[in-house]
Structures are given as C-alpha cells and as structure tokens.
C-alpha cells in the first residue's frame, strides 16, 4: 500500500505517458499527501514532458537519410562480399 519515493516517481513517470493504472494513481495520490519532494517531482515532470514535446517537434532525426557517399561505401563493401 505504501510506496517508496522510487516507486512513486516511477508511477509518476508512467502517468506522463497515460499508462498508470487506477490503483497506481490512487497510491500515488496518497504518497503526495505525505511527500512534498515527490509532489515537486511530479510538477517538474510535467514541465519536462513539455520540453520533450518541443524537442520532438524539432528533432533532427525527423528527416534523415544516408548521403550518396555513405551509400557508395556500403555498396562497395557489399560487392566485395558477393
């Protein structure tokens, strides 16, 4: 029933992806009543999620491909094995 801070913040992370179960969320709520530090973690966690979304939008991996040079190199290496 009683969560450690480690367990509580794990559930807190799950909530950021909408994947904490009902019972987990109840236990988390009770933990917050007793623990200000985890409450602060939870608040900052939402800020972090916002940051990750901003990061995702501008991620440099959104569009990427191999350059011709890379392909040529792989092509040659592959041919040498045929």
């Amino acid at each position: 029933m009683k969560l450690t801070c480690d367990e509580a913040t794990t559930i807190c992370d799950k909530t950021q992806y909408g994947e904490a179960g009902l019972w987990e969320r109840v236990k988390l709520g009770l933990h917050f009543l007793m623990c200000r530090t985890c409450g602060l973690y939870s608040k900052q966690n939402q800020v972090m999620t916002k940051c990750y979304h901003i990061h995702k939008e501008t991620s440099k991996y959104n569009k990427s491909c191999l350059c011709d040079e890379d392909k040529k190199e792989i092509e040659q290496n592959l041919k040498s094995k045929m």
């Binding site: 191999l66 792989i74 290496n77 592959l78």
Partner: peptide, 28 residues
C-alpha cells in the same frame, strides 16, 4: 539492395539508435 532499401532501413534504424554512424553500421 543499397539503391532500393538503404534509405528505408536507415530511417528505421536511426529512429531507434539516434546515431548516424551506428545506424549506418547496422544497415551495412
């Protein structure tokens, strides 16, 4: 293979490993 699939395989890989050289090696 390289002409037809290298980009597709590379994209699949880079979205998981996030490092160009690593992804290139895995595709090769």
């Amino acid at each position: 293979w390289v002409t037809l699939y290298a980009d597709y395989l590379y994209n699949y890989t880079i979205s998981r490993v996030s490092n160009h050289d690593t992804a290139k090696d895995i595709v090769q």
